[in-house]
């Protein structure tokens, strides 16, 4: 079984998680830029964070044979902080870089005018840099937030098949499917979506444009819930090819639209890490 987790915040996970993920079949991940728990107060903090998503994290992932890519954006929550707004001016140079496979996460948190502006401007950046967009849907007031999201996407002029609308559930999947966008589901231990519910959604809505992710971060989450969902699919009667489609080929197809997805074998030239600080602790 090969797994591509299209949405996981590895920055907040340990190196041991990379090892467990690799052992369970995770071969590729996309890490969207998002908030970090503690609010940031200046654009420099974002620059260091974006650099880490394009430097340290791919390196850490590579030690375990996992391909790591990123999406870059000013997230909706911090778009409301005037101290963070200048991050929008930093984005063009990041959106040119190899390894950046979409603009994201963008979208709504509390549906404020500031979020409207940041969302529209970043969809325009996606078009300008020829990148797909990864769109977060709000945790509160989700149904209305999702409808409004689809209206803004339609107004922006970006092609719907270049947009992934994420964190969907039984109530919000329908309109996104009708709009022609890709549908993302974050499988969580308790909230958002569970493997059995996910399987039922796949039964009802089919496998086309469906993406399953763990969205694992610093919260109560589990980077192996993609694997768990794959098992639940098999137990429910889906076959191995169905699992491969949802958990590998679909995310490859979506992010390949960036022209920057690199799934070639990792170079063997990377030094042997027997004694390294991150594999053994210390130093």
């Amino acid at each position: 079984m090969r797994i591509f987790d299209p949405h996981i915040h590895m920055t907040s996970r340990t190196t041991d998680d990379y090892r467990r993920m690799a052992a369970a079949g995770v071969r590729a991940v996309v890490e969207p830029a998002f908030w970090l728990g503690q609010p940031r107060t200046n654009p420099g903090s974002f620059a260091d964070y974006f650099d880490s998503l394009l430097g340290w994290e791919p390196y850490r992932a590579g030690l375990f044979g996992v391909r790591h890519h990123a999406t870059i954006a000013l997230n909706p929550k911090e778009a409301n902080d005037p101290r963070c707004r200048p991050v929008l001016d930093l984005l063009p140079r990041y959106l040119d870089k190899d390894g950046v496979v979409a603009v994201g996460e963008i979208g709504y948190d509390s549906m404020t005018p500031e979020e409207d502006d940041a969302f529209a401007r970043q969809l325009a950046l996606a078009v300008e840099h020829d990148l797909p967009a990864l769109v977060h849907t709000p945790h509160r007031d989700k149904a209305r937030g999702t409808r409004r999201t689809l209206e803004v996407v339609a107004e922006s002029g970006i092609a719907p098949e270049r947009v992934l609308v994420d964190h969907l559930n039984e109530l919000t999947v329908g309109p996104v499917q009708e709009a022609g966008c890709w549908m993302g589901f974050s499988i969580y231990p308790e909230t958002k979506m569970s493997p059995p519910r996910m399987v039922e959604i796949l039964r009802r809505h089919g496998l086309e444009r469906m993406l399953v992710n763990s969205a694992a971060d610093w919260g109560h989450s589990d980077p192996l819930l993609t694997v768990e969902t794959a098992r639940a699919m098999l137990e429910a009667g889906f076959d191995a090819d169905d699992v491969d489609r949802v958990l590998w080929r679909n995310p490859v197809e979506f992010y390949r639209q960036s022209g920057r997805l690199d799934l070639s074998d990792l170079p063997e030239a990377a030094p042997e890490f027997e004694g390294s600080s991150i594999r053994r602790g210390g130093g």
Binding site: R93, D96, K97, D98, G99, G259, R260, D262, S264
Partner: peptide, 14 residues
């Protein structure tokens, strides 16, 4: 140089 340098990996291959 900025944009060429950033895009060089996908243009030139590895």
């Amino acid at each position: 140089i900025g944009r060429y340098f950033a895009a060089a990996g996908r243009r030139a291959g590895r």
